[in-house]
Nucleic acid binder design. Sequence first.
DNA 1: CAAACATATCGCCTTTTTCCGATATAACAA
DNA 2: TTGTTATATCGGAAAAAGGCGATATGTTTG
Lengths: 100, 100
Amino acid sequence: MDSVEVFKALSNKTRLQILSWLKDPETHFPAQEQMSLDCHGVCVGQIQIKCGLSQSTVSEYLSLLQRTGLVTATRVGQWTYYKRNEEGIKLLEQFIQNEI
Amino acid sequence: MDSVEVFKALSNKTRLQILSWLKDPETHFPAQEQMSLDCHGVCVGQIQIKCGLSQSTVSEYLSLLQRTGLVTATRVGQWTYYKRNEEGIKLLEQFIQNEI
DNA sequence: CAAACATATCGCCTTTTTCCGATATAACAA
DNA sequence: TTGTTATATCGGAAAAAGGCGATATGTTTG
């Protein structure tokens, strides 16, 4: 885990919100079918609508969150579904408890 | 706690190192007398030497860490001693566990 | 095949961060 | 008082991040 990069990824209100929304996707993304929610996560378009930022910005935010290990991405057809990576988030918690 | 500002403060290798060094100041700052270490923390000059950055940069880093609640500062004579603020760090841990 | 759709990437400009040297402030010492 | 030491603050140049529109890539549908 590159801790500096992880903290940079978290240094942004929108990206923090995305992570928080993905804790409870059923509540925050009702427009999407339940099945894909549970299986793979939430697709970029739904997250973009909720953020209110441009498509390119949200796509870049999500790929940053993925590079830093905070979410995982699954491509299914023309959609990319993102969900929280609880293991990566646990690594962050451990880093803060042990190294900071 | 302004979580975005806290994560920005942690998005820097040197500032992370400072926090880590202050976990065990006796080991990392042997040049300083034990008494002030335990009482108030470590003074700016000692931290600056260990960082290898300019005096102004380190002073600004420390005041950023203080503004975000991660350390506390105590002025004693011509020295300012910095030490970890365990309460602020606990707030960060709780934020990560509850909000992220 | 072409058109439509979802996402990713590129180029660009603006804003913020990084880090420095110079200078200011404050405390101490002679 | 003057000089010295420790820290803080200011101003600026370079690098990075924020965020956009345009465009490219990949997938589905007709």
